[in-house]
């Protein structure tokens, strides 16, 4: 009898631990957004033609707003994203990274294609007219403005350095702050890909 009681208690404790482990909410490394509407579907130019986030329904889309003359933040963030894609292995095929340049004066689609390929071959770079970029940036919460640079850079662009993740249906799911690591990005992307 005592053995039965012991087994029952053990099973409950074990089950509770297992239940808690499997049912616990995933702790995201970014801010989760519960938007009831799909996010803005912009249409911007890449080296291979026009690109919209909706072209990749069924994939998780990662958006990053920056520019190729960006001295530090953009290459650091894109390098982390590229590493996160490599960490994902074959699952990376289900993720599309799009870099939106907020510097259309200097970033042609061709130049952007060359730039993003340094970080991962699957990344796409897009840009467009200022009005299009103003709308897209504003509605994705990205502030940007020209500031004075050095002689070499002529001007710089201050911009919000967040990474945005859209789920397979095009809903904004997650916002990563600047400084998130490649492991943290990969961890959250894996979870979103499982959903």
């Amino acid at each position: 009898m005592k053995i039965k009681v012991f087994i029952s208690v053990f099973a409950v404790v074990l089950g509770l631990a297992a239940g808690f482990y499997f049912l616990r909410p995933h702790t995201f490394h970014g801010t989760v957004i519960q938007s009831p509407e799909p996010s803005l579907d912009f249409n911007l130019a890449s080296a291979d033609g026009q690109v919209s986030p909706s072209d990749f329904r069924g994939k998780v889309v990662v958006l990053y707003f920056g520019y190729t003359f960006c001295p530090d933040i953009c290459p650091a963030t894109l390098a982390n994203v590229g590493q996160a894609l490599r960490n994902l292995g074959s699952k990376a095929d289900e993720v599309q990274v799009i870099m939106v340049s907020v510097d259309p004066e200097r970033d042609t689609p061709e130049k952007l294609a060359e730039y993003v390929a340094q970080f991962h071959p699957s990344m796409i770079g897009v840009t467009g007219a200022k009005e299009q970029l103003d709308e897209a940036a504003s509605l994705y919460g990205i502030f940007y403005e020209k500031t004075e640079g050095s002689e070499a850079t002529s001007y710089l662009i201050d911009h919000t350095a967040t990474l945005l993740v859209l789920d397979r249906e095009g809903y904004l799911k997650l916002v990563f702050p600047f400084g998130v690591t490649s492991d943290e990005i990969a961890d959250d992307l894996k979870y979103i890909l499982r959903q």
Partner: peptide
């Protein structure tokens, strides 16, 4: 967490 506020 409804949606991102617009930037301005």
């Amino acid at each position: 967490r409804m949606r991102l506020a617009p930037a301005y």
